[in-house]
Design a protein around this nucleic acid. Structure first.
Length: 296
DNA sequence: GGAAAATGATTAT
DNA sequence: TAATCCTTTTCCG
């Protein structure tokens, strides 16, 4: 998943290619036919992300709420205005796919026949977007949207002024291990399994440290690091958490094998100390960490 | 062809 | 904690 950085990229993509235009909304798969009918023909007035939630706003005061879950993803295609990434969401191969180069010949004539289980298809005069595999895809009102937002912690990608303090407060009020709290969207909105492991390593924090025992300065530093690393994820369209000096290969773009400190590196030597990276389950998800650098 | 895995979250036991 | 949902890709036979 699409962790928070992907959702913010989606909001940006929808704003740039669809905002201000009337969209044909359909559900080729059929499972979202009723919802699609309520939006069909309306103008997309905006797109916002909060954590892993994506809201598409239409001119009839309704919102399309989308949560990609583990394997949801959007595919895009169209004319030259669609020249960015063509796929955003669950990694199909590695990171996002670059748009196929049609030479900018203005050959776009319309969306292709839907392939597979397309829950929603959005079509403008300039291009299309297909959504597959989301956990949530529903039409809601503004009040319902606020109910969703109220349950979320601060989003490091939204730059709220009191984000760090808010995060520190939410951490300090709980006794669970920090590696579980970072995945809890009521504590911090947008972090998933990759960022939680990588950020804890970058800050050299033991995954079993309880939220309560995290010092305010440490919580602050952690927040700032999450902001940095996720903002970079938005810019790059992929998660790269290693510092250049900690990579054994300086190639650009950063090879997948050099992008992380601990995520999916169990049994491999820690980039800092050489200790084997460990793997455990926490909160029903795989947790990767360095037993030495992150000793409790 | 089938199973397993994948950057998630809710609900039930 | 376990079961469940959603879909595609990868790996194995």
């Amino acid at each position: 998943m699409p962790e928070g950085h992907s959702i913010h990229r989606l909001a940006r993509q929808f704003t740039s290619v669809f905002a201000g235009q009337a969209l044909q909304v359909s559900s080729p798969q059929g499972r979202f036919a009723a919802g699609a009918a309520r939006l069909d023909g309306h103008v997309l007035t905006g797109a916002q992300a909060h954590g892993k939630q994506l809201f598409l706003e239409f001119d009839n005061d309704l919102f399309l709420r989308i949560h990609l879950g583990l394997y949801g993803a959007f595919d895009f295609g169209g004319d030259e205005s669609f020249r960015g990434a063509s796929s955003i969401g669950a990694p199909r191969r590695v990171g996002e796919q670059e748009a196929p180069d049609d030479g900018g010949l203005g050959t776009y004539t319309g969306p292709p026949p839907p392939k597979g289980a397309v829950r929603v298809r959005l079509v403008s005069p300039h291009g299309w977007a297909d959504l597959r595999g989301p956990t949530a895809c529903e039409v809601i009102t503004d009040e319902e949207r606020h109910v969703v937002l109220q349950r979320l912690g601060p989003d490091p990608l939204q730059q709220a002024k009191d984000g760090a303090e808010d995060f520190a407060r939410r951490l300090a009020s709980r006794g669970s291990p920090i590696a579980a709290l970072l995945m809890n969207q009521e504590v911090l909105a947008g972090v998933g399994n990759v960022y939680r492991a990588e950020v804890l390593f970058r800050q050299r924090i033991s995954p079993w440290t309880t939220g309560r025992s995290v010092q305010p300065e440490q919580a602050h530093a952690l927040w700032n690091d999450v902001v940095d690393v996720m903002a970079d994820g938005v810019a790059q369209g992929r998660i790269v958490t290693t510092l250049p000096g900690d990579r054994s290969d300086q190639a650009e773009p950063v090879p997948v094998s050099e992008a992380h400190y601990v995520y999916k590196r169990q049994g491999l030597p820690c980039r800092i100390c050489g200790t084997d990276i460990a793997l455990t389950e926490m909160a029903a998800r795989k947790l990767y960490w360095c037993p030495s650098c992150q000793a409790g």
